[in-house]
Design a protein around this nucleic acid. Structure first.
Lengths: 116, 116
DNA sequence: ATGTTATGTAAGTATTCGCTTACAAAACTA
DNA sequence: TAGTTTTGTAAGCGAATACTTACATAACAT
């Protein structure tokens, strides 16, 4: 339905302006002109960013007269969180199963190295 | 020379091949040829992806003779997690800090109208 | 030594990105 | 009615992406 993930959410949040837009309207839905007023780029540029964000489901538009209120719909970020989750214990050094696995592999690698 | 060109980690993980590379060598450090063997693109293409990943600090290279073992160094992903964190409760509908903020804003708005 | 392996890097290319200006279509206001 | 506001979208452009092939170099094997 509703424009289901034609666009990759990872690619959508790669742009810093789009991340700023999300941060902005997460606090409060805004119409397009107001959003554009917060940035140094042109209104059509913002419009194009909003389009990308709606195409990946991160923003939904609520039409009110001639204004279009943009509000966040952040469920697609779950895909990012899900990708991050199993990697997290690696960089946080909270040693779980993955670290055990790595430890074992390191050991066997070292054993295979020959000494002369 | 400590990684001159600081690359944006959001941009680095925007590419699905690079995410797959990270997922692959997170389990076990691999040399470049082995990594390339797991993908359908050319070896130089993988080499360029690895370069990007090292430039943003997500991968470090351990040279062993003529081989270069690539292993993950995932701390930079903390920046992604940190950006995600305050938004998370929004899409998970677990009403915490951000909701509190929104609630407060709403409350003060109400106070302006009702209480004189 | 010769040859093979593992790799980096240059050059070229097609595509995408992020932006601009210009224009058009609705929806309000006077 | 006419004019203003809010917005989408097309066209164009420079820069960045993601590849490719071709070649170069260093480490290993024979």
């Amino acid at each position: 339905m509703t424009v289901a993930a034609r666009r990759d959410v990872f690619q959508a949040i790669a742009d810093p302006t789009r991340r700023n837009i999300i941060g902005l309207i997460a606090k409060k839905p805004m119409n397009l002109n107001s959003i554009a007023g917060e940035f140094d780029i042109s209104r059509p540029a913002i419009s194009q960013h909003i389009k990308i964000l709606t195409e990946c489901g991160l923003v939904i538009i609520r039409q009110e007269g001639r204004e279009r209120y943009c509000e966040v719909q952040l469920e697609p970020l779950g895909a990012v969180a899900d990708w991050l989750e199993p990697l997290r214990e690696l960089w946080e050094h909270r040693f779980g199963k993955l670290d055990h696995l790595l430890g074992n592999m390191h050991a066997s690698y070292k054993n295979k190295k020959k000494k002369k």
